[in-house]
């Protein structure tokens, strides 16, 4: 191993240890991902977003809450790079701090919705029979309502606020994941490798967690990344309607909502957070596309 380069060590077809095998698989995936330039671009934007969120207090030139009515609705200038809003707050600072909220929403929804979906979908697909019927009818009920309307209903019941908005989004966005996971499970369920594990005496729980989940997770991850844009927009929509983040929180959707009164004369107030939402949504879409190259089991055969 001494004269081998790290690259050869990672790419070998005959790994010597468990760790080498796992790292090798990850490195292969990274190479595939790296070949997709647009996906790399998306990843770069998202890394910037995360860095921006982490270092928000140091990066933002002013406090996102500091009002200065004398300076209200100023166009972009050297003092305020992206202008100021109706209360004279620096839009750039608000944008930078808003990235934390965006990431919070995205992260929480991405943690809750696919997990519910994975659980419901795989259990339904794997158990079959009446379990499948009951779980999928419940899924259908959720799917029957338009997502935003259902989220509105939940927020109305739970009360406005960013936490409840996230919860409502998570609760309303799991059904498509459940459907996807169930469809995958149905194709996996009768595979020979499941039959072989069964013949070793593996119980349903082990088969579900150890054998079915690893195969479903990858397509779910891709789907989540592609859906992120929609989740950000839904969260922004709730914020816009005043049911998400409450003032003075610098949530991007709420910022657009604030700016819409002045959109004709002071376009930057609404346009800047709009651009931010657009760019982040695009980045997630590109990332999802690249992840599909890596995680799609059909592509992994080559």
């Amino acid at each position: 191993m001494t004269e081998m380069t790290t690259r050869a060590w990672l790419l070998t077809d005959a790994p010597q240890t468990r760790r080498q095998a796992r790292l090798g698989a990850i490195y292969q995936g990274w190479l595939t991902f790296r070949a997709n330039r647009l996906a790399m671009f998306g990843l770069a934007i998202l890394i910037l977003l995360v860095l921006m969120a982490i270092f928000a207090p140091w990066l933002s030139p002013q406090s996102p809450f500091a009002q200065n009515l004398a300076e209200r609705l100023k166009p972009p200038s050297a003092a305020h790079w992206l202008g100021t809003d109706a209360l004279g707050r620096d839009i750039l600072s608000r944008l930078i701090h808003g990235s934390r909220i965006t990431l919070f929403i995205v992260g929480t929804v991405a943690l809750i919705a696919p997990v519910i979906g994975l659980f419901v979908g795989t259990v339904a697909g794997f158990a079959g029979g009446w379990v499948d019927q009951v779980l999928m009818r419940i899924t259908d009920i959720f799917l029957a309502f338009p997502k935003l309307i259902l989220a509105l209903a939940f927020v109305a019941a739970l009360g406005p606020g960013i936490g409840n908005a996230v919860l409502a989004l998570a609760i309303t966005s799991w059904p498509p994941y459940a459907r996807l996971a169930r469809a995958e499970t149905l194709t996996i369920r009768h595979a020979d490798y499941i039959a072989a594990a069964r013949l070793q005496g593996a119980g349903p729980l082990r088969l579900l967690i150890g054998h079915v989940w690893p195969l479903c997770v990858s397509s779910l991850i891709v789907r989540v990344a592609l859906d992120m844009a929609g989740i950000i927009l839904s969260a922004a929509g709730l914020g816009f309607l005043g049911l998400g983040a409450q003032p003075p929180m610098p949530e991007w959707g709420a910022m657009i909502s604030d700016g819409r009164t002045y959109i004709l004369d002071f376009w930057w107030v609404a346009a800047v957070p709009g651009m931010a939402i657009f760019i982040v949504s695009l980045a997630f879409n590109l990332l999802g596309d690249g992840l599909r190259d890596v995680l799609d089991p059909k592509g992994a055969k080559e």
Binding site: R18, A21, A191, D192, Y193, A195, A196, A197, Q200, G201, A202, R206, G210, H211, P214, L215, P297, A300
Partner: peptide
């Protein structure tokens, strides 16, 4: 090509089997 789990290494397949047995 269908009887081995695509995401399980040989080590994982055999150790799980031995454990189950």
């Amino acid at each position: 090509y269908a009887s081995l789990h695509p995401r399980h290494s040989v080590d994982r397949v055999l150790s799980e089997t031995l454990h189950l047995q």
